[in-house]
């Protein structure tokens, strides 16, 4: 009986905690179906007009496709760079290895605003502002540390004897990598893909410095929109973003299982 009481108290506590964390996310849903001209809660009338407004907003839609393309390219590049890098740093011993690893993952600790300013200064002199290449490179600075860290953990926890077994069975080093190492780090690769994609898709701070009228991403476009107006269109966009994020998480869950991918 006693345990049941405490577990009820615990449940209520957890419920409150989740409510607190998720309230802003949950509020967005009713607000997106508002029929009002301005963003307020609770809405006085209901409609889906802001969803249609969003889909008809050409700037917004263009920014969405830019973000989607950008996140895809950035994720692919992150994996192509981070997989060999993580392998090198977990499998080979060389002087300065730990220093290099810390250097690569340092952007995780830096304030993004500092990174954004630094990138702005460098890119301005190179003519990379408001270009796709510029955005890709800037996003890589943010996504690579995530990818590297997740993949290094994945490689570090692998049973090295599997690779050794493959070697004694006659597999050349490249064959060992593609037939044993890479398949065994699949959960790590899926996790890194999801993280990189979401980080790039959501990136605002650095992107703000690099976008302009020529090119803009969805988060930046939303930010600019809210800056000028206060209608529920952003709520509708937020709902779609939440659903996209959920979709990514679901795919990860279906293919690997969240526990196996993110919790080690």
């Amino acid at each position: 009986m006693d345990t049941e009481k405490t577990s009820w108290a615990m449940r209520i506590l957890v419920f409150i905690l989740f409510l607190y964390l998720l309230a802003p996310v949950l509020l967005v849903f009713p607000m997106s179906f508002s029929g009002d001209q301005v963003l307020r809660f609770p809405p006085t009338s209901w409609s889906t007009r802001w969803y249609s407004a969003l889909l008809e907003n050409r700037g917004m839609m263009r920014a969405f496709w830019t973000s989607l393309g950008l996140a895809t390219i950035v994720t692919a590049l992150s994996l192509v760079i981070a997989i060999p890098a993580a392998w090198t740093m977990t499998r080979l011993r060389f002087p300065g290895r730990d220093f290099l690893f810390n250097l690569f993952t340092a952007p995780l600790l830096l304030p993004t605003i500092v990174l954004g300013l630094a990138i702005l200064i460098v890119f301005a002199s190179m003519g990379l502002l408001a270009t796709t290449q510029g955005l890709v490179i800037a996003h890589l600075v943010v996504t690579l540390p995530y990818a590297l860290r997740v993949l290094a953990v994945s490689l570090g926890t692998q049973n090295l004897e599997c690779e050794e077994a493959a070697r004694t069975l006659g597999a050349r080093p490249l064959v060992v990598f593609f037939r044993v190492t890479l398949p065994m780090m699949m959960p790590g690769i899926v996790a890194a893909t999801a993280l990189c994609f979401l980080v790039s898709f959501d990136e605002v701070v650095i992107t703000l410095f690099l976008t302009g009228p020529r090119i803009s991403t969805l988060p930046v476009e939303l930010y600019n929109y809210v800056y000028n107006r206060a209608d529920p269109l952003v709520a509708a966009a937020s709902v779609l973003l939440i659903l996209l994020t959920l979709a990514v998480i679901m795919i990860v869950e279906r293919t690997m299982g969240l526990g196996r991918t993110f919790v080690r």
Binding site: N159, C162, A165, T168, L169, P183, M186
Partner: peptide
Amino acid sequence: DMGLVFQSYALFPH
């Protein structure tokens, strides 16, 4: 050309 059996078995999990 050697067959090695490990303490951890080291079977390929995938």
